[in-house]
Structures are given as structure tokens and as C-alpha cells.
Design a protein around this nucleic acid. Structure first.
Lengths: 352, 352
DNA sequence: GACGTTATTGTTAGCGTTCACAGATATCGG
DNA sequence: CCGATATCTGTGAACGCTAACAATAACGTC
């Protein structure tokens, strides 16, 4: 008769009632202790805390969320989270959220597509997030976002300011002006540009800043080359540019290549390699500048002049914005935070 | 008489009962439709789905979690999530988890400390995760983990295999052997090493692999230098090594520096810069190899020989392991997954 | 046409909290 | 020592869902 005694089966986590019983109070008192309600006698509080300790009790978050209608969870959708920028934002954002008592759940997108984005948001939504931060700086993505009617607030990061969605962004335009101005100031006749993919808002803004700086200075605007943020694409663009330098003695239909502003540091690395292979000296024959200030940039050959973005600040600002939306959900919907980037001059742009 | 009519106040999200009423069925039937129960008449199912659509109904995850005792959420604790490696793992892991129907919530640590780790785990625990993946490759961290008695399964990544905690890791030892062997095979008398921080398990394993390869080959083992994974620390180590090269003609108490295995690519970048500044040619006078194969490595000056780790595979494996723990929580607790790294030879180690 | 099956639907009872309120106990001035 | 007020504690009812069971309808068989 192998009588399966109830024994010490996989006993379930203790509940508030268990704690209450052990402490000789009602479950409500336990709840009060846990939520720091003032009207609990000190001795009672101590009893309860001891019982909690002894039982290893932890409040059940689902039950709590059910009744309070708060999950204290925020969602993030991010696009290329292995890149330095997005990763840094994610990090800063998570830290800020945690400080405010929120948990963050992330969904990452391998590549942007309207479908992927909306699935990501659905996924987050299914888990009951109270709001989300979208770090998907595609023009199309932001447009798609505006169409969705979501039951919770959304904040974009680098989402541009053309739509009535609150957002945080670095002033890319300014950053591009800083670099371009710096290069012009060093005496170059004009500045070439290797841009990011044209459907990225950041790429577009950097092109804009670059172009308008040149126009304001009244110098010729060379045709921008286009990459995809990867070192390889920068390398290809670099080969193209190196070819122009070589040919410049012969037929010169476009201005000499003596300065290049590359839209991010990774591509700038590719450009550097291409130039090196072509026997061009940097900054001797051509000055180069990048954008982002990844930790490696300072150690490139030569160290790269670039624009530093305070990604951590972006993450924090986005959380602040999201939380303010959460609290005042009826308020105007177009708050914007713009963070100023900073030019970091290194030797890739300054003739020794 | 400003009679505050109930009007269209901030009306709450529709509930299952609302859907049921609208579709003319019981809430249980709605539940059945939502969970794809087979025994629902097609017409009924259609009615329910239409009602769901019209009301924009979404199942309340908290209520669901409360009754099913499943939050379908996993936690991750990661340490330096802006670095390429950790970020890649996080990404791969999140994707794998999502494919399995789980959400992942992350907590990031600025720097490891026993306190920070246990707080991070508490935080996750408070939100009801069903299990966690810990990507904190510190010796002390893993030890601390083993002490914690947690009510849910834990899987480590790069946590070493000295403790009875299931984990996934790349075979760092093998990776180090591959590089070191490669350099010896190229004819170098010995191989110097710039190691990572000594309290990192990965750093330790790489030292081990490096050292044993040299010992097996019967060559002298130079004293390893130590960095902290950053390019700057690599730069400093590089200066030190460059000094030795210069002095090697004079007093030679340690073997010539003709080959260096640097414990990660970022530090290798710093070493490259130091050598460049010292006028040393790579690979002409000194061959260099790194570890990680970050996307930039191929475009370093010169392109860097390194060891590629399949971070995505690590992420996926860790999720698989965690889920298997979840299902069979009574089973043995020491499953291990080891992923083999791959040597990537580039010109930093191959004399042209 | 009665009966056993099976497909389909409804009813009831929790899951573990918090909230609103009621009850109990202490404190205090007159 | 009484009633009033403040402090503390308990009771019952949600929250929105799923699990278990009960009930009904549909279908074929003999």
C-alpha cells in the first residue's frame, strides 16, 4: 500500500495569510506592514517582519498588480542593441527606471520593419507594461507608431520631432555642424560626407547639419556617399574617396578630398583602413572625423575626432518623460527633450 | 448644478466579461477561445473573436499570472552591457526567450559587487520572474550565487564550472590555446600576454590556456601584464611592452617581445596604438592577436587576428538550459553547455 | 424512440493582494 | 469614570482570470 502521503511535497510559496497566521495577526496587517502604513504598532510590526523573515515570504507581484492595476513595468523596443549607442541608452534607461521603482522589459529588433515593430509592441503590451520607450530611429517606424492607438504612453528616442509623440533626442544637426565647422575652420576648402542609411532619422539629420554648414560657409557641397553604419560600408566609401583623391590631379569635376565627415565612428574606422591601404596619410593628406565617440575611437590610427553623445542622459531623460506621461495621461502630448552633443577633437583632424 | 455625469470617463480596459456579454456567451467561452481550446463551435469562436476585435480587448496578464502561477517572464543580470560581448548575449538571449513565449526583464550592473548582485536578483524576484540568467563572470559573483537559496532556477553564463550551478560558457581555454598555438606556429620563440582583470573568470581561463600552451611547447612563459578590458589599459600595457622591445638589445632578462596575445580586442586596439607610437611595426616586428572578434576588429590597423565567440549561441543555449530547469525542477543541477570558439586569422599576426 | 457518447457551453470557486469600511482598543479632558 | 477622539486591527469584497465540474445539446445506435 504505497500510500502517497501528502508529505513535504513541492510546497508552495508562503502567502500573506501564512505570515499573518504565524504572526498572529490578520493578513491586512501584514499588508500594512509591507506597504509602510504608519498606523501599526511597533511590536506588531516587528512580529510581522519576523514572521516574514522566518517564512521567507515575498509578496506576489501578480496579485498585487491585479488589484492595484499597476505592473510597475516599462517596455523598451530597441533596434541594433549590440551597437554602442543603443546599448548605452538601454543601460542608462534601465538604471533610471530601476531607481524609480520600475522594471524594464526589452524587446530587440534584428532589423526594422513595420511588422516587427508592431509585434514587439504587442508582445510588450501582452505582458502589461505601463508604457514603452521606442528606440527605433527609422522614419517609417515613427510614422507607424503614430498610427497605432495604444492604451499606454509611448516615448521615442531619436524619433524626430515631426509627429506629436513625446521624445528625447540628441541634437544631431548641431553635432554635424560642430564637426563640419571644425573641419572648415582648419582650412579645408570643403568637407565630404559619408552618410548613414537614408531611412535613418539620425543619418538624415547629420546630412542636414553638414550640408547647411557648407552652404552657410558658401562652399561647394560634394555629393554625399552612403553607408550602412558598418565598418565594411565605411571601408567601401573610403575606397571610393581614395580613388577621387588619386584622380583629383587629372579631371577634377568635384572638389578635392581633403576632409571627410563620416556619420559614425565605425564607418570612420573603415574609411581609415581604406585610406591607409591607399597610402593616404591621415590627417596629413585627408582629415577625418566621426560621430558617437565609441570607446575605441580614441585609439584608432590616428585617434578619431568625433562627436560625443551622452547616451546615459538620453536614457534617463526618456524614462523621466515616460513617467511624466504616466502620471498626467491627459496632458499635452508633445514634450521634447533635446540633448546637446559635444565635439571631441583628436588627431585625425589636426595636422601634427 | 454641474452634475458630474458618469459620461465617458477614463473608461477602463474591457474585461473578459465585457467580451462575453457582447458575444452573448459566458466569460469561460471567451477564455477557451483565447487559449485555443478545441471544443468551441466555429461560429461561436467567430462571434467571440469579433467581439474581442470590436472592444480592443486584451487579456490581463496579471490576473492570468495570478491563477496560472506562471509569469512567463525571465530575468537577466548583466554586467557591462555596453560591451559587445554582453550586449550580444543579451540580444541573443532575449530573442530566444521571445521565441519560447517568454518576456525578459533585465537588470544591469555598473560594476560587480556582492551587494549589487543580490539587489539585482531581489529586484527581479520581486517582479516574479520564473528564472534568471546571470551574466556576471566574476569569480566572487558565482560564489555568491551558490550561497543564495533562490526559489527559482538560475543559469550562469561564463560562470565557470566549479560550482553546482548549470551554466553556459565559451571554451576560453581552447580559444587561448588556438591563438597562442597559432602564434607559436608562426615561428615566435614565445608569446606574451596582456590579461584581463584577475577576478574575471574569462581572463583567468585565457591566461590558463595561454600558459599551458607555452608550457606544452616547452618555451619560456613571460610574465603576463594585466589590464581591465579597456583600450586605455591595453595602451598602457602596450607602452610597457614597447619599452621591453626597445630595451631587449641591452639587458635581456625576459625573452624578446615578438608576439602578443591580448585578452580582448579592445585592449589589443590600445596595444596597437602604443606600438604605432613607439614606431614598432605590426606584424613586422611584433605579431598581435586579440579575443572576441568585435565588428571593428577586421578594420583595425592592421586587421586583427582574434578569436570569435558565438555570443548569439550562448544566449540561446542559456535560455534552453533555463527552460529545461524550469520544466524539470527536481532534476540534477549541473548541466553544462560549452561552446567552441573559432580562430580568425588576419594580418596582425601574419607577416605580409 | 430511449440510451450512451461526445461536443459544446455555463457555473462556481478560487489565485493572493489591496481597498473600504467596521470594529476594537487606547488616550484624554472634564 | 464617561464619552469623544485618535490609533490600531480585522472583515468582506473586489481585481480579472483559469480550473474543475455540471449541465445541456447533438448525434448516432439498436
Amino acid at each position: 500500500m504505497s500510500q502517497s502521503a501528502p508529505s513535504t511535497g513541492p510546497r508552495r510559496a508562503p502567502t500573506m495569510a501564512d505570515v499573518a497566521q504565524r504572526a498572529g495577526v490578520s493578513h491586512q496587517t501584514v499588508s500594512r506592514v509591507l506597504s509602510n502604513h504608519p498606523n501599526v504598532r511597533d511590536t506588531t510590526r516587528a512580529d510581522v517582519l519576523r514572521a516574514i523573515e522566518e517564512l521567507g515570504y515575498r509578496r506576489n507581484s501578480s496579485a498585487r498588480a491585479l488589484v492595484t492595476r499597476r505592473t510597475l513595468t516599462l517596455g523598451v523596443v530597441a533596434c541594433n542593441p549590440t551597437l554602442f549607442g543603443p546599448a548605452s541608452m538601454l543601460f542608462g534607461l534601465e538604471e533610471a527606471a530601476r531607481d524609480e521603482g520600475f522594471m524594464v522589459s526589452a524587446v530587440t529588433l534584428r532589423r526594422y520593419s513595420a511588422k516587427a515593430l508592431s509585434e514587439a509592441i504587442d508582445h510588450l503590451s501582452d505582458w502589461g507594461v505601463e508604457g514603452i520607450v521606442v528606440i527605433v530611429p527609422h522614419r517609417a517606424a515613427v510614422a507607424a507608431l503614430a498610427d497605432l492607438r495604444l492604451p499606454f504612453p509611448v516615448v521615442t528616442v531619436e524619433g524626430g520631432h515631426s509627429l506629436p509623440i513625446p521624445g528625447v533626442s540628441v541634437d544631431q544637426d548641431l553635432g554635424a555642424r560642430l564637426v563640419t565647422g571644425h573641419l572648415l575652420g582648419a582650412g579645408h576648402r570643403t568637407v565630404w560626407h559619408v552618410a548613414g542609411p537614408s531611412d535613418w532619422l539620425e543619418a538624415e539629420a547629420r546630412v542636414r547639419g553638414w550640408r547647411s554648414t557648407l552652404e552657410d560657409a558658401g562652399v561647394e557641397v560634394p555629393p554625399p556617399l552612403v553607408g550602412d553604419w558598418t565598418p565594411l560600408s565605411g571601408y567601401r566609401a573610403g575606397q571610393e574617396l581614395a580613388g577621387r583623391v588619386a584622380a583629383s590631379g587629372a579631371r577634377r569635376r568635384s572638389p578635392d578630398v581633403t576632409a571627410v565627415f563620416v556619420a559614425n565612428d565605425q564607418m570612420a574606422l573603415g574609411v581609415l583602413r581604406a585610406f591607409r591601404e591607399a597610402g593616404l596619410s591621415v590627417p596629413g593628406q585627408v582629415a577625418i572625423a566621426g560621430f558617437d565617440d565609441i570607446p575605441e575611437a580614441e585609439f584608432f590610427a590616428p585617434p578619431l575626432t568625433t562627436v560625443r553623445q551622452d547616451f546615459a542622459a538620453v536614457g534617463q531623460a526618456s524614462i523621466r518623460l515616460l513617467l511624466s506621461r504616466l502620471e498626467a495621461s491627459g496632458m499635452p502630448n508633445d514634450e521634447r527633450v533635446v540633448i546637446e552633443p559635444r565635439l571631441i577633437v583628436r588627431s585625425s583632424s589636426t595636422p601634427a
